[in-house]
């Protein structure tokens, strides 16, 4: 098991490095460098080229590409992500203030969609071919076909503006302290974010459950005379669970992508919101850093998924 984990990590490291390199290339390709961000344009126009050049040299900008990349990379590993071009705030600070909001939203959506999606998927698989199954299939299809932000708009109109049950957006008010105070703010965005995920998990859980139920050991369990619910849940679902766990790991990109848009719809002050405003104001260092972090999150998640699958299903390890 340990060798398996080590091997996985060893594959991951060069990939992470290549991605860092590509992101840095992107950063280099974008217009402007540190000097043009540090000095306001009027002053820059009146400075003479020799001064600018001296400043560039002192910042290390005149050095060859690989040296600059290396210094950027070693800073990155130590947690110095550089500075935002809007106001020069350290990017690490921006991330630190924005990340909790995103994690809060994403974890609620992930838990909710997993539980509901698995339940509906199993129900659908057990009543295969019935009217309920057909209805669930169509509902699942609707869930992946309707744009998330459209769901968000309808939810705001109905539940926030017309019924007034929940606030329109934002994460909290100044007087709110505990999570309980903020809960009403969390309900609409997390539910809307869950819809697409739930539909995906449901479809997957259904096919995985159907697959498990057609195996021989289910027949064995049934012929032993076990009650039907035990056969379905203890024998069928346990096996069906493995692919579902994998799927949940691979949902992370969907979750990140979804939260980028949903945070914008509900003005949720998370990373996604920051990312969009950075793209709009062409704050490239922030854009690149957030992109890089999201890739790293996906890579780590896929590593965890692989390890979990290997733990649950010994065939994976032996197959390697």
């Amino acid at each position: 098991m340990l060798t398996y984990i080590i091997r996985r990590v060893l594959i991951l490291i060069p990939m992470a490095f290549v991605i860092c390199f590509l992101v840095y290339c992107g950063l280099e390709l974008t217009p402007g460098d540190a000097v043009s961000h540090m000095i306001n344009p009027d002053a820059l126009g009146s400075m003479d080229p020799a001064q600018i050049e001296a400043l560039r040299q002192s910042l290390g900008l005149g050095q060859p590409f690989y040296v600059r990349f290396w210094s950027w990379f070693s800073n990155l590993i130590q947690g110095n992500f550089g500075f935002s071009t809007n106001g020069g705030v350290p990017i690490a600070n921006i991330i630190a203030t924005r990340l909790p909001a995103t994690l809060e939203l994403a974890s609620v959506a992930l838990i909710f969609s997993t539980v509901i999606g698995c339940l509906l998927g199993i129900l659908s698989a057990l009543s295969r071919g019935s009217k309920a199954d057909g209805a669930l299939t169509v509902v699942g299809m609707l869930g992946v076909s309707i744009p998330e932000f459209f769901f968000g708009l309808v939810a705001i109109l109905v539940f926030a503006l017309n019924l007034g049950w929940f606030p329109v957006g934002g994460r909290s008010m100044p007087s709110y302290v505990t999570l309980w105070d903020r809960l009403p703010h969390l309900v609409l965005p997390s539910m809307v974010l869950s819809i697409m995920l739930t539909a995906g998990v449901m479809r997957y859980a259904r096919s995985s459950m159907l697959d498990a139920l057609s195996r021989d050991f289910i027949k064995t369990a049934r012929s032993k005379g076990l009650p039907e619910w035990r056969v379905n849940l203890l024998h069928g679902f346990r096996v069906a669970l493995t692919p579902v766990v994998v799927l949940i790991g691979f949902r992370l990109p969907v979750l990140i992508g979804g939260s980028v848009i949903i945070e914008q719809v509900f003005q949720w002050p998370g990373i996604g919101n920051e990312f969009i405003s950075a793209v709009r104001s062409q704050d490239y260092p922030v854009v690149m850093t957030i992109a890089l972090l999201s890739v790293m999150a996906v890579l780590v998640a896929s590593l965890i998924v692989d390890v979990l699958t290997a733990l649950i299903d010994p065939r994976v390890r032996l197959g390697e």
Partner: peptide, 8 residues
């Protein structure tokens, strides 16, 4: 594919 698509 390791980039979340919308981010990329």
């Amino acid at each position: 594919m390791s980039f979340p698509q919308i981010i990329l």
